[in-house]
């Protein structure tokens, strides 16, 4: 288990333990954290699990694939550096303490 902190757009913080091997999206979903909708269930078909990764963590995550870049390009107010789709980020031991922030809305 790895502790991940999800910060809602309104500033509410949720720190939860997520099983290694799941995705950051599944960690939010399984713990009922609002702000990550993940309508497609992690099939990489929508863009409703978008977050801004805390700047300290950006370089510690695996790089984005082209498809993720493309989906994020037209997400709601993407940040070229910090935006990620959480269904594409697998939880590893190295992500202990990861902090992500949700956008105002998901589209």
């Amino acid at each position: 288990m790895v502790a991940i902190t999800y910060i809602e757009h309104n500033g509410t913080r949720h720190t939860v333990d997520v099983v290694v091997g799941k995705t950051v999206m599944e960690g939010a979903r399984d713990n009922g954290i609002p702000g990550i909708e993940a309508d497609c269930g992690g099939a990489f078909a929508c863009s409703t699990c978008h977050v801004y990764v805390d700047p300290a963590w950006v370089d510690l995550l695996p790089a984005k694939e082209a498809m993720e870049e493309d989906m994020l390009d037209f997400a709601y107010e993407p940040d070229p550096v910090r935006s990620r789709l959480t269904c594409q980020v697998k939880v590893t031991d190295g992500l202990k303490g990861l902090v992500v922030q949700m956008p105002e809305k998901q589209i």
Binding site: E26, D30, G32, C40, G41, A43
Partner: peptide
Amino acid sequence: QRPPLSKAYLKGDMDRERLFLRPESFYASQ
């Protein structure tokens, strides 16, 4: 989730528990 039934789950690429929209404990907690 039903969509993976004809895709990743059928292929054997996805665990059964991963299909659940929420863990079973979610319902009790709510």
